[in-house]
C-alpha cells in the first residue's frame, strides 16, 4: 500500500470534508478498497474511516418502506426481519454473494460502490482505461469470460460484480446521497451506476465529496421474489449471469414483472420494456423468448463471454418458469 494519512470521521460532515480532499477515499468495511490498495489499483493519500459515523441503522419509513443505512453490513441487512419478510430477493441476493466473513464487514454503501473485478483492472501492469485512462482495454482481445455483453463501449467491457444492487434494481430502490454542502439528493439505484461510454473510470454518479447515506426501499408489494445466480463454483464466485425477479400473477397473467440482471453489463441491467411486455400477458416459453429478445437486443460477445448471451436467455426462461410456478 502507498502511505496514507488515516483519519476517523465522526460525522457525515466530517466524512464529506475528508472525501473532498485531494486523493482522498472513504473506507467503511474495506473489503474491496483494501484489496485494491494492496495492489495499488487504489492509491489514496487520505483515508477517511467512516465506520463509526452511525448510518448503520435499518428503519421502517413512513410509507412502510425501509431505509437501510449506508453502513449497515450486508449481514445485518440480510438477516433483518423485514428484509427477510418483505424483500426476500434482497436477502437472497446478499446471501448469494461473497462469504459470511466478507458480508460481516461489507456495507450497503461500499457494496454499491464496489469496483469491477476485471482481471486487467486489477493488474496495474496491464492496460485498463478504467484504472489508467487512455492506456487501452486489456480485456478486449484478451481473456474476457467475466465481461459484459450489454452496454459496453470500445473503451471498457467490464461488469459490475455485485449481487445486492441487482436485487435493489429489481425492487426499485433509491440511493440517498449526502452532498458536500450537507444537502441530500436521491437517485434511483437503476440510475446510480453508469455505462462505461467514453468515461469508463466513472462507475457511478457520485461526485467528489459525496457520500451514500442510505438506500430506501419502496413499500412492499405482494409478489414472488427470486434471485438466481449462475456461477462456476457453487459458492464464493462472481455471477456469470444473475437475475433478480419480482413477479406477480393475477388471473393467469403477469401482473408484475420487475427484472434486473447481473453479470451482463457495467451496471445492474434493467430494461423497462421487458416488464411492459410481460405484464398483462400469459406466461409461455414463447413469451419468455420475446423477453429474452428484448434483453439481448444489441448484445455483443467478445470471445470468451459469448456464452453469456445464450446463458442469459436460458436463465431467464428458468427464472420466469420458477417464479410463475411459485406465484401460482
Amino acid at each position: 500500500m502507498r502511505p496514507f494519512q488515516y483519519q476517523r470521521a465522526h460525522s457525515i460532515s466530517d466524512a464529506s470534508a475528508i472525501a473532498a480532499l485531494p486523493e482522498a477515499m472513504l473506507i467503511a468495511g474495506g473489503t474491496n478498497l483494501l484489496d485494491m490498495m494492496k495492489l495499488q489499483v487504489a492509491t489514496p493519500s487520505q483515508l477517511g474511516d467512516i465506520g463509526r459515523i452511525g448510518l448503520d441503522g435499518i428503519q421502517d419509513t413512513s410509507d412502510r418502506g425501509l431505509r437501510i443505512g449506508a453502513l449497515a453490513t450486508n449481514t445485518a441487512t440480510a438477516v433483518h426481519p423485514r428484509v427477510r419478510a418483505d424483500y426476500p430477493v434482497l436477502a437472497r441476493a446478499i446471501l448469494a454473494g461473497a462469504t459470511q466473513q466478507l458480508r460481516n464487514k461489507a456495507t450497503t454503501g461500499g457494496n454499491l460502490c464496489q469496483r469491477t473485478r476485471c482481471y486487467y483492472f486489477m493488474n496495474v501492469d496491464q492496460p485498463c482505461n478504467k484504472r489508467d485512462p487512455g492506456s487501452g482495454c486489456g480485456a478486449i482481445g484478451g481473456v474476457n469470460k467475466l465481461h459484459a455483453v450489454l452496454g459496453t463501449s470500445d473503451q471498457c467491457i467490464a461488469t459490475y460484480p455485485g449481487d445486492m444492487a441487482v436485487a435493489l434494481t429489481a425492487l426499485g430502490a433509491k440511493v440517498v446521497i449526502a452532498k458536500s454542502d450537507g444537502a441530500e439528493r436521491t437517485v434511483p439505484v437503476r440510475d446510480f451506476h453508469l455505462l462505461p461510454g467514453d468515461t469508463p473510470w466513472r462507475d457511478n454518479v457520485l461526485d467528489q465529496g459525496e457520500l451514500i447515506v442510505a438506500v430506501t426501499l419502496p413499500p412492499p408489494v405482494a409478489a414472488t421474489q427470486l434471485y438466481r445466480k449462475v456461477r462456476e463454483r457453487s459458492s464464493y464466485a462472481f455471477a456469470l449471469v444473475s437475475i433478480a425477479a419480482v413477479i406477480a400473477i393475477d388471473d393467469g397473467k403477469f401482473a408484475r414483472a420487475d427484472l434486473a440482471f447481473g453479470g451482463l453489463a457495467h451496471k445492474p441491467w434493467h430494461d423497462p420494456r421487458i416488464g411492459e411486455l410481460l405484464v398483462g400477458a400469459a406466461p409461455s416459453p414463447a413469451l419468455y423468448d420475446q423477453a429474452a429478445d428484448l434483453l439481448l437486443e444489441g448484445a455483443e460477445g467478445h470471445g470468451d463471454n459469448d456464452f453469456k448471451i445464450p446463458l442469459a436467455r436460458r436463465t431467464l426462461h428458468a427464472v420466469l418458469a420458477e417464479a410463475v410456478e411459485k406465484a401460482a
Partner: peptide, 27 residues
C-alpha cells in the same frame, strides 16, 4: 492470499467472523 479470497486469516471481532487481511488494525 491477503485479499479475502481464502479465509485462512479468519478471526472473530466483536462476535463476528471476518477476514483479518481486509481490515486495518487502526479500524
Amino acid at each position: 492470499c491477503d485479499h479475502g479470497q481464502c479465509g485462512a486469516c479468519t478471526v472473530i471481532v466483536n462476535g463476528l467472523r471476518i477476514n483479518s487481511c481486509l481490515t486495518l488494525a487502526a479500524m
